[in-house]
Each structure stands twice: as C-alpha cells, then as structure tokens.
C-alpha cells in the first residue's frame, strides 16, 4: 500500500502544477467552445455590413473594410434592374420587415394573452382543486407532449379550412385568427405554472379560507402575485415562440399577401434562392442583414430579461 501523504516540497510542487494544468485546460476548453458559439453571430453581423465586392472576393476579412450601411436600406427598397426589354424589375424584392414585425407582435400579443389566462386557470385547477381524475387527466395532458407536431398541423389545417375560411385568406384579420386560435393554450406552460403554484405553501390557502376568502379571490390576490416570476417567464417565452414560429404560419398564410407574413415566413419568402446568386449579383450580405434584423430584437429581449429566461429554463429541468 502506497501513501503519498506527509510529503516533501518536491511532491507538493508537482501536485500544485498538476492542478494548475487542469485548470488551464478547463479554461481553454470553455473558451474554445465559447468562440464556437460566438463566431456565427459575429460573422452574421459583420458580413451584413460588407459591400458585395468584399463578399465575393477570395480573401477573408473579419471586420468590413468599408462599412456598407446601405445593405440595410437595400433590404427595404429592394434592388432594381432593367430586364432585356427595358422594363424595370426587382432582382431583389424588398422585405416587408415592418409588416413582419407588426404581425408577429400582434399575433404574439393575443396568443400570449390567451395562453396566460387559460394556463393560470388550468394550473390552478390542477394544483389546488380537488376533483376526480385530476392526476389521470394531467398525465394524459403530459403524454400529448410526446406527439410530434405535424399531427396537429395537418388536422388543424383541415379543421380550420373546413369550418372557417381563415386558411390562406386574403383578409388580414382572418389570417390573424388562424394564427392565434390553435395556440391559446399550452400543456408545457400549464405544467410549468402548476409546479410554481404547488410550491406556494398550503397553509396560506388554509389561512385565507379561515378568513372566508373565495377560491377565485385567493387565486387573484395571492397565487398570481406570488408566481409573478414564472408568469413573466411564460410571457417572454411565449412571445419569443411566436417570433420564431414558422411551420404553422407557412401553411396558414398565403405568401402572396406579403403584408400578412410573420417574421420567419417573411425571411424565407424574401430570401428564396438568395444563396444561389453569384458574382456581383450575390446577395449574401443582404441575406445576413435580414438575419441580423430578425435576431437583434431577440437579443435585446434576451439581455433585458435574461434572468427570467434563464430561471424558467433551469426550473423546467429540475423537476424533469
């Protein structure tokens, strides 16, 4: 049996160096991975500001040599050329960012509002009310989270097109309806909020009962204020969800009606075929400028509400 205890300075030094090396490699690994994460962002932002000549040239430039701020205005005005017949046409159509942002905010607002209301009520029922079949029902709801999304997309498409005229409607409001209704409730957020509600001690409820408070009042005056953090997180995540939504809107909105597009769909429609453009016609920088336009609001939200988002995500993992 060998013991390296009670030792001399040489071994001690060796030990200390060993720890130092371990630390060094840890930092190195973390830094390399951080660079890996950051590079796409930086590439996106800086390349969006490069003039076309730099993009197509062979050399790598990190920061743009010339700052082509006009790339961003080109996003809005488009690029016009003259076709062989002397007629002007758009070789790059303007992307309706203002509509995209507006629509997304409106849809997001209503979806989130609806979600918050239904989720609060449902979470309250599952956490504080007694009724037969409560746990069974909840388990069934949880199980639906395992179902792949296209199951819902297909049937909801069918349902809405058969019973309403909202699918691919030219009417802006009807389009909103189609975008909003299927998403006014969410099992995931109900689960999340129920967790938070459960953590409010039962004694508060009993004390309120003794004072003659009705359940509903208890919900409004006690549970909701105490769960503010979670509700805020839900609101933020829901808004971000709408911002990033793509699949359902792409089926429900007719892309001809460009004023109806949401953020992701607008991007997709506007940049069709962009990566195939070559030479002086290359719009790669515009492609990245468009991505930046869409990403920057998200980054702003992220940095402002970092705490809530981080907490919400890590909380959802703890129970898991």
């Amino acid at each position: 049996m060998e013991r390296e205890l009670y030792l001399n300075p040489k071994e001690l030094k060796r030990y200390k160096i060993g720890t130092g090396i371990g630390r060094f490699f840890t930092y190195l690994y973390v830094i390399i991975m951080a660079v890996f994460i950051v590079v796409p962002f930086l590439w996106m932002i800086f390349s969006s500001l490069k003039p076309t000549e730099e993009i197509i040239s062979r050399e790598i430039t990190f920061l743009p040599r010339t700052w082509a701020w006009s790339n961003y205005s080109k996003l809005f005005t488009g690029i016009q050329s003259i076709d062989p017949y002397g007629q002007p046409y758009y070789s790059f159509k303007p992307i309706p960012f203002h509509w995209m942002f507006f629509n997304t905010i409106v849809v997001g607002f209503f979806t989130t509002a609806g979600t918050v209301v239904t989720t609060i009520l449902a979470a309250f029922a599952f956490s504080r009310l007694n009724f037969k079949g409560r746990e069974t029902l909840f388990t069934i709801l949880l199980a639906t989270m395992m179902i792949p999304g296209e199951v819902f997309v297909i049937t909801n498409y069918m349902t809405l097109s058969r019973y309403t005229g909202w699918i691919k409607s030219a009417n802006h409001l009807e389009n909103y309806a189609a975008l909003i209704f299927p998403f006014i409730t969410s099992v995931f957020y109900t689960f999340f909020l129920r967790q938070t509600f459960k953590q409010i001690p039962n004694e508060l409820y009993l004390a309120a009962k003794v004072d003659g408070t009705s359940d509903f009042k208890y919900l409004m005056k006690v549970m909701i204020p105490l769960s503010q953090a979670t509700i805020t997180t839900i609101i933020i995540l829901s808004m971000i969800g709408t911002w990033n939504a793509y699949i359902w809107p792409s089926f429900v909105t007719n892309s001809i009606y460009t004023e109806q597009l949401l953020v992701s769909n607008g991007l997709m429609a506007g940049l069709r075929g962009a990566s195939e453009t070559t030479g002086p016609n290359s719009v790669l920088n515009l492609q990245l400028a468009a991505s930046t336009m869409v990403t920057v609001p998200l980054l702003i939200i992220f940095f402002s509400f970092k705490k809530y988002i981080l907490r919400g995500v890590s909380r959802s993992g703890i129970k898991g």
């Binding site: 992701s264 492609q287 980054l299 970092k306």
Partner: peptide, 19 residues
C-alpha cells in the same frame, strides 16, 4: 454567451449557416 443560441430564430440561423 452559451445561452445566446436559445433565443435565435431557426430560419435566421439557417440562413447564417447557409452563408
């Protein structure tokens, strides 16, 4: 830094990787 990717838009990100 490590959390940044969480708030990116899938399509926008796809475009970035595309480029």
């Amino acid at each position: 830094i490590f959390f940044l990717p969480y708030v990116t838009n899938t399509i926008a990100l796809g475009l970035v990787f595309n480029s």
